[in-house]
């Protein structure tokens, strides 16, 4: 196998692993049992999706995925903070 083929297979297996990781996070998001568990699952899902986008970038050789990953990271941060704030006070903006 040539090194480039190995890289191709490595990236595909990495994407499968990240996909499984996203499934674990989704299970926590759906199953709970409490609201904080669901938010933790959502936060992990965001991070895993961001890493998945970076691997897509390596696979296609395009730097465009970088911006998408950055935006997903930002949205994940803001939404998790807003949800955690909601858990604490029952309202997001006071």
């Amino acid at each position: 196998m040539s090194p480039l083929a190995i890289l191709g297979w490595a990236i595909i297996s990495a994407q499968v692993m990240l996909g499984l990781a996203m499934c674990c996070a989704t299970y926590r998001l759906v199953a709970g049992p409490r609201a904080q568990d669901r938010i933790l699952g959502l936060d992990t899902l965001y991070v895993n999706a961001m890493l998945m986008l970076v691997t897509f970038g390596i696979r296609t050789g395009s730097t465009l995925y970088f911006e998408a990953a950055l935006v997903i990271g930002l949205l994940g941060f803001v939404s998790t903070v807003a949800l955690a704030k909601f858990l604490m006070r029952g309202e997001v903006i006071e």
């Binding site: 990495a14 990240l18 996070a25 699952g41 895993n48």
Partner: peptide, 14 residues
């Protein structure tokens, strides 16, 4: 591969 494996182990912890 290392990065994806570590991330998977972390999510498995969930």
């Amino acid at each position: 591969l290392i990065g994806a494996a570590v991330t998977l182990i972390g999510s498995l912890g969930l």
